[in-house]
Nucleic acid binder design. Structure first.
Length: 657
DNA sequence: AGCACGCCGACT
DNA sequence: GTCGGCGTGCTC
C-alpha cells in the first residue's frame, strides 16, 4: 500500500513540564502494523542518537507541527497499555492539579515485564474462561434495593457504613463495610461490568478481599497495590486489559487501573490520609475517583464510618446522595470525663470508674479493646527534677524507652543514653512521661491479673484475635478484628490525640474512634474517655455527618478548604510573585504570604473557588513551564552563578491550613 | 534533563 | 582568522 504515511502523536515519559504535550512523529512503513494507539514507543528527541520512551496516543493523517517530522524509532510492545479512557483521565486529572499527565500514567501503568507480557500474549489465544462469576445477592442493612439501584443507575452516593463486623461464609470476620462493598462489586460483575475498589491500607485490603471471595469468582478479583512484586503487578494489570469484567481492589493508585466497562468505583474511608498521593502529582484518590466516575458515567460510592468534610461538601452541593443504614445501627457509646476511680489499682489510674467497670464486666465474656495514641513503651522521657523533655547527647533527638526496663535511647539516631545528664538542671534521673501501648499493656496486665494482654501496633501487627477473654491494647488504626466483636472498647487517649496542632485533628480523631467503635459486638459498650464537646456528642449520637456539617460551615466562614480550593506556589520571591500576578484577574480570592522558607525560597498560597480552578491551574501551569524553559542562571550572594530553583505548584495540599 | 547553537574573548 | 567556553533555548 502506498498511502501517505500516518502521523503518530506521542506523549513522552518525562517529568518535565515543558514536555507534557503531544509531539508528532512520522510512522515508517515497517512500523505501520504495530503502531497503534496506547502502545509504548521509543522516539528520537533532538538530533538523532538519543531516544526517549513514550506512549502513542493517537494516529492522525496530518501533523499539527509545521516542520520535518522525525520517524518513530520503535514500537516497544504491541500491547495497548494506555487505554483512551486512562489517557483522558490522566489529562483531566493532571490539568486540574497543574501536573504532568505522565506522572499519572506512572501510577496507572506498571513498569513493563517482558517475560510476563510474553506469557500473557501467548495465553490470549486460548479460549477465555466464560461466566463473569459475580453473584448478585440482596444487600442487607439498607433500604432494600437502595445500593443495588445506585450501582445499576450509576448514581453517586456517600454511604454510611454499618458500624459492625460480619462473619464471612468461611468463618472469618471482617468489617461490615467490606461485605457491603463486596456485594456491590459482585452485582456489577454479574451485570458484566468491572468495579474498582480503593482502600487506604493493607488491613482494609485484606478484609475486602476476604469478603470479595465470598461473592465473586477468584479469577475475577485482581489485586493492585504498590507492595506487590513488579511481575505480579504487571500480570494483574494485563488481565485488567482483557474484555472480561473484573473487580480490582487496591490502594490509591488502583483508581487509575484499566477496567473494561467500568460500572462502579468505590472508595473506603476517604478521610484516611493514605488516600492522598504524597509525591507528584499529589492527587487525592477521592478527586481522581470523582473525575473518573463522571468521565465514564459509572456509579461512585464513598463509604466510611465517618464523614469527611470534603464528602460532606459534596453531599451539600447535591453531587452525592446520602445513604444511611436502615434501620439505623449505632454502637453504644459512653462518654466519660477523665477521672480515676477511687477503688482501682494505681497502675490503672487513667481509667475512669465507668470504663473500669465496663472492662471488668466485659472481660467475663470475651475480648476487650483498649485504644491508645502511641506505640512503643514510653515514647517520651523527661528529667525527673526539672521536667524538661530529655534529649539525646549525640544528636539532640528525643529520648524514649522502647521496652520495659530498657535504657532510654534516641528515637532519631538510636544511641543509648547510658550516662544521661539533664542539659537544663544537670539532674541525672529520668521519669517516663508518656505511655505507649506497651506500657499501658503492662499496667493493665497488673491491674487485671490473670488476663491475657496483647499489644498490636505498627511494629507488632495483629490482624485478628479470637473470642476468648483478652485485653487487646492497640494503637489507633492497628486494632485487630475480634471474632464476634469486642465485648467492650475503651478509647483511652482521646485527650492526647486531640492535642496535635492540626486543623484536622477533630476529623482524624472522630475517624479513629469511629473505626474502632465499629469493631464492637452488638450492644457492647464503647467508652470514650476524657473527651467532651461536639466530638463526644458526634460519637454518642453516631452523627459524624452533623460534626462534618458544622466543621464545613466553619471552614466556609474562614474560607478554608474544602470550602475553597488552594494552591501553594514555592520558588524565588520574584518568580512566585510573577506567577501569581499573571493569574487571570478575578479568579483568585486572595493570596496568603509570601512566607519565607529556607534556601531563599518563599511560599505563597492562593485561594480560589472551585469554579475558577481550571483557570488558576492553567495559568500557574504556564508559569511553571515558563520557569522551566528559561532557567536563567542568576548571581548568588558571593557572585557565583547558580541555577534558578524550579517553581513548584501544588494544589489542594492537605497539610496546609 | 541533555544537547546543540551562538556570541564573545584569546589564541595561532 | 577561528577555537572553544558557557549562557540560552529547544525537544515533533
Amino acid at each position: 500500500m502506498s498511502e501517505t504515511a500516518r502521523v503518530a502523536r506521542v506523549l513522552l515519559d518525562s517529568p518535565l513540564p515543558q514536555l507534557d504535550r503531544l509531539l508528532d512523529y512520522r510512522v515508517p512503513e515497517e512500523l505501520a502494523d504495530t503502531a497503534a494507539p496506547g502502545v509504548r514507543v521509543k522516539v528520537p528527541l533532538r538530533s538523532a542518537g538519543r531516544v526517549s520512551n513514550g506512549f502513542l496516543i493517537e494516529l492522525v493523517d496530518k501533523a499539527d507541527f509545521v516542520g520535518t517530522l522525525s520517524d518513530l524509532d520503535t514500537v516497544v510492545s504491541p500491547v495497548p497499555v494506555l487505554s483512551p479512557e486512562l489517557w483522558t483521565l490522566a489529562r483531566r486529572v493532571a490539568d486540574r492539579g497543574a501536573g504532568n499527565a505522565s506522572d499519572i500514567l506512572r501510577l496507572g501503568i506498571p513498569p513493563r515485564q517482558v517475560r510476563v507480557e510474553k506469557a500473557w500474549l501467548a495465553g490470549r489465544g486460548a479460549p477465555q474462561r466464560s461466566g463473569a462469576g459475580g453473584m448478585a445477592s440482596p444487600i442487607h442493612g439498607y433500604q432494600p434495593g437502595r445500593i443495588e439501584d445506585a450501582v445499576r443507575d450509576a448514581q453517586r452516593i456517600a454511604l454510611r457504613a454499618i458500624p459492625r463486623i460480619a462473619q464471612l461464609p468461611g468463618g472469618a470476620w471482617a468489617g461490615h463495610w467490606a461485605v457491603t462493598l463486596a456485594q456491590a462489586a459482585a452485582q456489577c460483575l454479574a451485570g458484566g461490568d468491572s468495579a474498582i475498589l480503593v482502600v487506604p491500607d493493607y488491613r482494609d485490603q485484606d478484609q475486602l478481599e476476604a469478603a470479595l471471595h465470598a461473592f465473586a469468582a477468584d479469577e475475577a478479583i485482581i489485586r493492585m497495590d504498590a507492595r506487590q512484586p513488579n511481575a505480579e503487578r504487571y500480570r494483574g494489570f494485563l488481565s485488567c486489559l482483557e474484555p472480561e469484567p473484573r473487580i480490582i481492589v487496591g490502594n490509591r493508585s488502583a483508581v487509575y487501573a484499566p477496567a473494561s466497562r467500568l460500572g462502579l468505583i468505590a472508595l473506603w474511608d476517604d478521610g484516611d490520609p493514605l488516600h492522598a498521593e504524597p509525591l507528584s502529582p499529589y492527587v487525592h484518590a477521592r478527586d481522581a475517583a470523582l473525575i473518573r466516575a463522571d468521565q465514564q458515567s459509572c456509579a461512585l460510592i464513598l463509604a466510611a464510618h465517618t464523614r469527611s468534610v470534603e464528602t460532606q461538601r459534596l453531599v451539600e452541593i447535591g453531587w452525592l446522595h446520602d445513604v444511611a443504614p436502615a434501620p439505623a445501627v449505632t454502637p453504644r457509646v459512653i462518654v466519660t470525663a477523665q477521672q480515676a476511680a477511687a477503688d482501682t489499682p494505681a497502675g490503672a489510674a487513667r481509667i475512669p470508674s465507668a470504663a473500669w467497670r465496663a472492662a471488668t464486666d466485659a472481660l467475663e465474656a470475651g475480648p476487650v479493646l483498649v485504644q491508645v495514641a502511641r506505640p512503643g513503651y514510653a515514647p517520651v522521657v523527661a528529667c525527673r527534677r526539672c521536667k524538661q523533655a530529655a534529649r539525646c547527647t549525640v544528636c539532640a533527638g528525643p529520648l524514649g524507652v522502647t521496652r520495659a526496663g530498657a535504657k532510654p535511647s534516641c528515637a532519631a539516631c538510636g544511641a543509648i543514653a547510658a550516662d544521661w545528664v539533664c542539659s537544663n538542671c544537670e539532674g541525672t534521673a529520668l521519669s517516663l512521661v508518656t505511655r505507649g501501648a506497651g506500657r499501658t499493656a503492662e499496667e493493665l496486665g497488673r491491674a487485671f491479673a490473670g488476663t491475657r494482654v496483647l499489644v498490636a501496633d505498627g511494629e507488632r501487627p495483629v490482624q485478628r484475635v479470637g473470642a476468648e477473654r483478652a485485653l487487646v491494647v492497640a494503637t489507633r488504626g492497628a486494632e485487630p478484628i475480634a471474632d464476634g466483636g469486642y465485648r467492650a472498647i475503651l478509647l483511652l487517649d482521646g485527650e492526647r490525640m486531640l492535642a496535635r496542632e492540626n486543623l484536622r485533628v477533630g476529623d482524624d480523631c472522630l475517624r479513629w474512634w469511629s473505626n474502632a467503635a465499629a469493631l464492637a459486638a452488638p450492644g457492647a459498650p464503647v467508652v470514650l474517655v476524657g473527651v467532651g464537646g461536639p466530638l463526644a456528642q458526634a460519637m454518642a449520637t453516631w452523627r459524624q455527618d452533623a460534626y462534618a456539617a458544622a466543621e464545613f460551615a466553619d471552614r466556609r466562614v474562614l474560607r478554608f478548604p474544602p470550602a475553597v480550593r488552594i494552591a501553594s506556589v514555592v520558588g524565588r520571591a520574584e518568580t512566585v510573585a510573577t506567577a501569581i500576578a499573571e493569574i487571570e484577574p478575578g479568579a483568585v480570592i486572595d493570596t496568603l504570604g509570601p512566607a519565607p522558607l529556607d534556601d531563599a525560597l518563599v511560599r505563597s498560597i492562593v485561594r480560589f473557588d472551585y469554579a475558577h480552578g481550571a483557570v488558576v491551574a492553567r495559568d500557574l501551569r504556564a508559569a511553571v513551564v515558563r520557569n522551566a524553559t528559561s532557567r536563567r542562571k542568576r548571581p548568588s550572594g558571593d557572585g557565583r552563578f547558580v541555577p534558578a530553583p524550579t517553581l513548584k505548584v501544588r494544589f489542594d495540599d492537605p497539610e496546609i491550613l
